[in-house]
Computed example of a mutant assay.
Amino acid sequence: MNDAYNANVIFGLTAILTQTGAGDYFATLPIEIQQAINEHADEIHSREELEAFADTMMKKR
C-alpha cells in the first residue's frame, strides 16, 4: 500500500472517532483492541462498524 492510501485510512478512522464522538469509546478499549482497530481501519466506515469490530475482538480475547 502507498503512503497516500495509508493516510486516507488513518484520516478516515480519525474522522469517525471525532465526528461521531466515538473517540471516548475508543479510549476506553484495551490497548490490544485499539491496535486491532488501527490495523483494520480500512474496514471501518462508521461508529456502528467500529463498535461491532471491537465487540468481535473482545469476544476473541
Score class of each variant (00 low, 15 high):
residue 38 N to C: 09
residue 4 A to L: 14
residue 33 I to F: 05
residue 59 K to R: 10
residue 45 H to N: 12
residue 53 F to H: 04
residue 10 I to T: 10
residue 39 E to S: 13
residue 46 S to Y: 06
residue 53 F to M: 09
residue 25 Y to S: 03
residue 21 G to T: 06
residue 45 H to L: 07
residue 53 F to N: 07
residue 16 I to L: 03
residue 34 Q to I: 02
residue 38 N to M: 11
residue 47 R to C: 03
residue 40 H to N: 15
residue 3 D to F: 06
residue 5 Y to E: 09
residue 3 D to V: 09
residue 10 I to W: 03
residue 6 N to R: 15
residue 12 G to L: 08
residue 38 N to S: 08
residue 52 A to I: 11
residue 36 A to W: 04
residue 21 G to K: 05
residue 51 E to L: 07
residue 34 Q to S: 03
residue 43 E to P: 00
residue 14 T to P: 00
residue 37 I to D: 01
residue 19 Q to H: 06
residue 32 E to S: 08
residue 51 E to P: 02
residue 18 T to S: 11
residue 17 L to I: 08
residue 18 T to C: 04
residue 57 M to H: 08
residue 25 Y to K: 04
residue 32 E to L: 10
residue 53 F to C: 08
residue 7 A to G: 00
residue 46 S to F: 08
residue 61 R to K: 11
residue 8 N to D: 12
residue 42 D to W: 13
residue 7 A to W: 02
residue 54 A to C: 10
residue 34 Q to K: 05
residue 49 E to Y: 04
residue 7 A to K: 11
residue 8 N to V: 09
residue 9 V to H: 01
residue 27 A to N: 12
residue 60 K to F: 13
residue 37 I to W: 06
residue 48 E to P: 02
residue 3 D to K: 12
residue 39 E to H: 07
residue 31 I to D: 10
residue 10 I to K: 13
residue 14 T to Q: 13
residue 56 T to K: 10
residue 20 T to Q: 10
residue 60 K to Y: 09
residue 53 F to T: 08
residue 3 D to P: 00
residue 51 E to Y: 05
residue 11 F to E: 15
residue 59 K to C: 03
residue 29 L to I: 02
residue 35 Q to H: 10
residue 24 D to W: 01
residue 25 Y to P: 03
residue 19 Q to V: 04
residue 38 N to A: 11
residue 2 N to F: 06
residue 55 D to C: 04
residue 34 Q to E: 05
residue 49 E to R: 07
residue 31 I to S: 14
residue 13 L to W: 02
residue 36 A to R: 09
residue 5 Y to L: 10
residue 41 A to Y: 05
residue 10 I to R: 13
residue 20 T to E: 14
residue 22 A to E: 15
residue 19 Q to I: 03
residue 55 D to V: 04
residue 8 N to A: 14
residue 10 I to E: 11
residue 30 P to G: 07
residue 17 L to R: 01
residue 27 A to W: 01
residue 48 E to Y: 02
residue 4 A to V: 12
residue 43 E to Q: 15
residue 37 I to T: 02
residue 1 M to W: 06
residue 40 H to K: 13
residue 56 T to P: 00
residue 50 L to G: 08
residue 10 I to V: 09
residue 43 E to N: 11
residue 7 A to L: 09
residue 16 I to F: 01
residue 27 A to H: 05
residue 55 D to L: 12
residue 7 A to E: 12
residue 33 I to G: 04
residue 8 N to K: 11
residue 32 E to F: 14
residue 3 D to Y: 07
residue 47 R to K: 14
residue 32 E to V: 08
residue 32 E to H: 14
residue 50 L to Q: 05
residue 36 A to F: 11
residue 13 L to S: 01
residue 13 L to R: 01
residue 24 D to T: 15
residue 58 M to K: 12
residue 30 P to A: 12
residue 4 A to G: 01
residue 25 Y to I: 04
residue 59 K to P: 00
residue 13 L to D: 01
residue 2 N to D: 15
residue 52 A to W: 02
residue 45 H to K: 11
residue 19 Q to P: 00
residue 36 A to Q: 13
residue 16 I to R: 00
residue 8 N to W: 10
residue 14 T to K: 09
residue 9 V to L: 06
residue 4 A to C: 02
residue 42 D to H: 13
residue 45 H to S: 11
residue 19 Q to N: 15
residue 23 G to V: 05
residue 29 L to M: 10
residue 13 L to Y: 03
residue 21 G to I: 07
residue 37 I to F: 07
residue 49 E to Q: 14
residue 25 Y to E: 06
